[in-house]
């Protein structure tokens, strides 16, 4: 087992998250509890070693907030759409499995895109091809090629949003170039 040392900076998001969970579960945000939580977080991160998540090294909060709101709006709209489909269409609903090739090859972005896609009702990630970073998305109420193209565009837009939030600089410039041309 070759254990790569992780720098503290790389580990910091995980530690902060663990401390927040600890304090939230105790419902106690006093400094003493936070300190004890931090101690336990470091201990847990050391004992139960996980392969480090390779972050892009940047996080754009200005882009993240609209993305979150947009995501929430989409979830609301799509939830009601699925409810409508269940009531109106029922057994006759037509769906499709669509291959969506993604731009990014980083695990983090592929995972995040898959998560967001799966959380929005009406699309579900069936299979992930990691070597080509292709998501196979099962979409509900996808009746023809146009709907499939729309679904593909939606997923790729989600990915573009995530790249703008936390992609690496190289990915971001590639995205900008693609959108310019």
């Amino acid at each position: 087992m070759s254990r790569k040392r992780i720098s503290l900076r790389q580990e910091l998001p995980l530690l902060v998250w663990l401390v927040i969970v600890w304090a939230a579960l105790w419902q106690n945000f006093s400094p003493g509890n936070l300190l004890f939580g931090a101690l336990i977080a470091v201990l847990v991160a050391r004992l139960f070693y996980l392969p480090p998540v390779e972050l892009g090294g940047r996080f754009n909060l200005l882009r993240a907030v609209p993305f979150g709101l947009h995501f929430l709006a989409k979830v609301v709209a799509a939830s009601f759409q699925v409810l409508f489909l269940a009531v109106a269409k029922g057994p006759k609903v037509i769906s499709a499995v669509v291959a969506v090739p993604l731009r990014s090859h980083s695990d983090l972005l592929v995972t995040a895109t898959g998560h967001v896609t799966a959380l929005i009702p009406g699309s579900l990630v069936v299979e992930v091809d990691r070597s080509t970073s292709t998501l196979y998305v099962h979409g509900i109420n996808v009746r023809n090629a146009e709907d499939a193209a729309q679904l593909r565009k939606d997923v790729r837009n989600t990915e573009a949003g995530l790249i703008r939030i936390m992609g690496t600089k190289a990915e971001l410039s590639a995205l900008n170039q693609e959108l310019d041309s």
Partner: peptide, 26 residues
């Protein structure tokens, strides 16, 4: 209720999954 209606009315497993898991998030 949407999840339950979807479970009962959709024809196959995959479409049922759409109805079952997603509205619960909201």
């Amino acid at each position: 209720l949407a999840a339950a209606v979807g479970l009962l009315r959709f024809p196959d497993l995959m479409t049922r999954m759409h109805a079952a898991t997603k509205p619960q998030v909201l």
